[in-house]
Design a protein around this nucleic acid. Structure first.
Lengths: 356, 356
DNA sequence: GGCAGATCTGATAGCGATAACACCGCCTTC
DNA sequence: GAAGGCGGTGTTATCGCTATCAGATCTGCC
């Protein structure tokens, strides 16, 4: 069904090699021969088979990308960033949703090796992903880890300063009067959970506030459902906190649902702050106080690191890129904003960025 | 660097063919031989090369997916749906962002053919994409079109009932008292723009309202920026409309920005309704009246159609799946909701004001 | 015991593209 | 005029895997 170099060669009355040379411009071909070949290509509607090419050259022109969930806006932006850079470099992305499942992740890593992608971008499930990544190390397979570091594992990595960011965010909550602050966090084997919890503790300690383990609650899944469940527990506590620090935007949304269902108002009855802004949402309803991570940049930088590694343009040592997150103070935390409600000028109408 | 069947064969003291048989279980192998081979595979950390396999069998285990922009929540959900179904069937997705650019689209189609994906899912740029898709037809390449149909082009297709949906939405605006309704639309060579404009006209005609071309304004890009620009024009009109029908969620967000910057309030000063809900956003701020399309289902159904076609389980005739969109009435259109808006405690302060 | 048939295994030949080399003219160059 | 160079082209072998066929070994059965 599909024409091959040989078909083109026959039609143009040359050898397959000459056709290849015309396609790749890899050597000079007599203008008239070239024309004949080009005509044959057009007539046969010939498209080179990059699978065959990939077999010869072990260059498949593809990169693998494994994320827990593309539909999570956080990862969506990472995908977009990664895709943009990859495309410019002539690469396509093979997309995998690990669904935060270690077994899936393992399979995908193996499948990416099998597909002979030239490199792998991965936002791992957690510390236990280490075992899944060892095959990559063994093969000296180029890969870059995104967002979550893995304890005791050195590799190229792009992430945000979760400890610092959490500390800043919680310190802000403290600065506007909150003393009893709950945290919705993730199990300690996910670096973002671990780091943000640490930032939380550091902020409290710095303010001389005792840490109450009863109001630091873990959710196995950092999504809306998880936030919802944990917030239910928080509201059931005897000694209710006045504010909640949610590990990410989705858990915060779940928490808001619970708070509203309980007939309470954010921030009057309960302050709220979290990691990760939600694009678009900020336009319609500039409400959540967040630590905004440069998610798209995670993707672009990770791709760039990966391409460098594929191209052999870097040494063996792992490169860790730590990007800064921005504190965006809006109303959910209970801060009094100086700006009027309907100031003009896009994009973040009701947003005040901290000026430090 | 990577072990091959031959390496495994040598180590297990069998032929490459036998190794292949063990891997694929394609023929019976003596248990003891099998064990030797499996040990060799484990020791060499052998992973079969699916590129080579793909060359032999022309089965690459990949599908192509071309969308204008993964970061657009509408397409994100399509990607997720498509990925889920593809994965269950043992396929990976090769992701392409066409950026609504016909030239990019053309390249991507060719590249997908070159990569020998087994089928292609594509949300086309518009009617002009026809030329880009002809190579697929010529090769009888399996593909499914998503969201936007192409004038004069028959193929497998999944989309929503844009005409009916728009009619329903605009009729709703009329039913709650709006008589002068502007529309932010897309050029007529994109089916969603064409169809929704038609629904808009049908609704007006049914209500005996004359159509004023001056308040049906096109934006070349149906994104926030496009909505922003068009809404500026709308507000500059002498005879301002009382409501706006935006072709999708992003243009609606852009429109809201303009309205707010003008010191106006939705829906009191300007009603607003659009196609496409925004996940998460509805939780935080149930504000926008929308026609909600089952986006994830677009992806899953399209994948299913494609897999059927690849598997040769269907005839030649094209299948068109039209999914229903749901009208979700919230406050932005200006409808008086029966349930008190702040029944379980007010949502965030800003939407609260808009609801007054 | 011997033969048909089943079971197991190997050799060979591609899938489609291209690297490496060989070759043929023809032009320089001394 | 022989040696060398170079542009243009073809031949061969190979990437890693597997379809196909053929050979080897074993089994059951008369």
């Amino acid at each position: 069904m599909n024409a091959t170099v040989r078909d083109v060669a026959r039609k143009a009355r040359v050898s397959a090699m000459t056709v290849s040379r015309v396609i790749n411009g890899s050597a000079s071909v007599r203008p008239e021969t070239k024309r004949r070949v080009e005509r044959a290509i057009a007539e046969l509607d010939y498209v080179p088979n990059s699978v065959a090419r990939g077999l010869m050259s072990s260059k498949t022109g593809t990169l693998g990308l494994i994320v827990p969930d593309i539909a999570n806006p956080f990862f969506t932006m990472i995908v977009r960033g990664a895709e943009t850079v990859a495309r410019r470099a002539g690469y396509r992305l093979l997309l995998c949703n690990s669904e935060n499942d270690l077994a899936f992740e393992r399979e995908y890593v193996e499948e990416m090796i099998s597909h002979r992608v030239e490199g792998l971008l991965i936002a791992p499930v957690g510390d236990k992903s280490k075992a899944n990544l060892l095959p990559l190390i063994r093969r000296e397979f180029p890969f870059v880890i995104i967002d979550r570091s893995i304890a005791g594992f050195d590799s190229d990595l792009v992430q945000a300063d979760s400890v610092g960011g959490a500390k800043k965010l919680v310190s802000h909550l403290i600065s506007i009067g909150h003393r009893r602050i709950a945290m919705i966090t993730q199990p300690g084997d996910v670096s973002t959970g671990r780091d943000r919890s640490q930032g939380y503790r550091e902020a409290l300690e710095a303010a001389g506030i005792a840490i109450d383990p009863a109001i630091v609650i873990e959710t196995p899944t950092a999504d809306r459902d998880g936030g919802y469940r944990v917030m239910k527990q928080v509201l059931a506590l005897d000694n209710r906190p006045t504010a909640v620090f949610a590990i990410n935007n989705l858990t915060a949304l779940g928490a808001i649902q619970v708070i509203r269902e309980a007939g309470m108002v954010v921030p009057d009855d309960m302050g709220l702050a979290c990691f990760d802004d939600v694009e678009h949402l900020a336009v319609l309803s500039p409400f959540l106080t967040v630590m905004n991570q440069p998610t798209e940049t995670f993707g672009t930088v990770a791709s760039m690191l990966l391409l460098d590694r594929i191209g052999g343009r870097v040494g063996d040592w792992p490169r860790r890129v730590i990007l800064q997150a921005d504190l965006i103070v809006r109303v959910s935390c209970g801060a009094k904003l100086q700006t009027p409600r309907h100031r003009s000028g896009p994009p973040d109408v009701h947003t005040q960025r901290e000026a430090d």
